[in-house]
Amino acid sequence: MAELQHRSFSLGRIAALTGNTFTELVRLKVFYFLLIFALLLIGNSLFMARLSFQQEFQVLKDVSLGAMSIFTSLLAIVATAQLLPRDLEDRTIYTILAKPVPRYEYLIGKLAGVLLLLGLSILAMSALFLALLFVREQMLMSETLRETAGLRPEQVQAAIRSLEESAFNANLLPGIVIIYLKAALLAALTLFISTFASSNIFTIVVMVFIYFIGHLQATAREYWLQEHGGGWLAKTFLALVALAFPDLQLFNLVDDIVAGTAIPPGLFAQTAVLGCVYTSVYLFFAWVSFHGKAL
């Protein structure tokens, strides 16, 4: 029988860790938030029926994408924050790391599990959102056709075109991808913080602060880089904020997509690459922090 050789990097081991992490998270019944999301959408849709169709679609899209963003960000932070403390508490981590599993594989597996959960959640939310958008569009379409029955064909066409343009916008899809990448970034950063945090509460609190500061990072960066931007103390503080925190505002494309702005594909691609780089670098930092740490 051929001797089994231990490989320093194994996709199989990472897949096993990913599957295990995903199962653990699903058992925490985190998918209940999907129910809240569905209720929010349907409730919003019923309430908005009193507005004009342009208003209704704009509010529906804003509420749905805003809810997607907050739910995925919260899920990324809360689900990741409890991974390491839970494994330590259950002593599962000792069983895993006692086997020839490198620590980076452990971290990659854990993060991949969260990313899988986030991916499925955002897919489910997108499906719900697009289905509701489609149903409302069809309902309003038949209403419009009924109301414009006596008009000239080009006027009917114009009314239908206006309705279609208000309802679905192809830019919504890249916008949703960017929401996912922002959540992935937050998950990787949470994993990094949790490698040296004393408890998951500490990690969550720190991440909430990072979330708020991250949305103001661009403002701090601009003030820092301005020539007449205040004294050295203020400049040092602004430099620290600009250098240490991620710029989360760059990932808020949906506000403008809903308002009808077309995202240039190049800009979308650059934002997506930046999101991937952030996630990879924070995962690397997590490994630097976790590597050789006495457990």
């Binding site: 661009a218 600009a242 250098l243 710029d247 760059l250 494309l253 403008d256 800009l267």
Partner: peptide
């Protein structure tokens, strides 16, 4: 942070020129 600074500044500028934010 130092490495990503020019990238983020450039992206912010691109956002502005596309009338974002």
């Amino acid at each position: 942070g130092g490495l990503r600074l020019p990238i983020e500044s450039s992206l912010t500028e691109q956002h502005r020129s596309a009338y974002f934010h």
